[in-house]
Amino acid sequence: MPVPDDRKQQPKTTADAKIPGAYEGETVTRRRFMTASAHTAGGIATAAFTLPALGMAFGPVFEKEQVRWEAVGPTEDFPDDTYIPRTITLSPGIGEVGKSTVYVRRYNDTIDSEVKDEYNDYVAITSRCMHLGCPVRYVEASERFICPCHGGVYDREGKVSGGPPVRPLDRFYTRVRDGIVEVGPRYSLNSELRRFSPRDPGQAIDGVGQYLYPSRPSIRKLPGT
């Protein structure tokens, strides 16, 4: 048996509600309509300056960075058993601040476990520690990359051999043009040296990490690598 609806029946029109000055068939009072219009107008006006301003602040998150290739020296400069430090520009137009050190050497079958392809005839390793981004230094005597901040240590392939870093040192794509080695965009590696779109320091890629720290629209690995 259906329960009878004993709620008070809402009047459909303002005339039914016996509001003074009601027009026939009017369902919303003019006062309510004006209030709603004023609030809507205010909302639109606020959104008109807030949304573009926020878009400006958040735009760079979605803007893709240009792929740049930078010459670091002729091929004969780089041996295959030790690293040569070179300075490259990560962010152009801001002087010294935009520069960074990369460690470059020729690919060596007996050392390297990264799969060989057209982009790693020369191995270019970043000096950015994968713990929190301090600058690491390659120490020839111990064949290790060592970070001064919190004691991160990497072997000569850039794999973590001690300390807090969460993944191997990032690398840069390299290519050879007219006998000159060029360094391109950065990419990240998991502990098996498989390539991933570049992550920030401190973000693990192994296991669930690659989903917890998704790649960003602003910077991706080269397609097909």
Binding site: P60, E63, E65, S91, G98, S215
Partner: peptide, 15 residues
């Protein structure tokens, strides 16, 4: 990752 991109205005410390 998106928060750090927002803070830096891009993937690297920039202009």
């Amino acid at each position: 990752p998106y928060l750090s991109d927002f803070l830096r205005a891009g993937p690297e410390f920039g202009a």
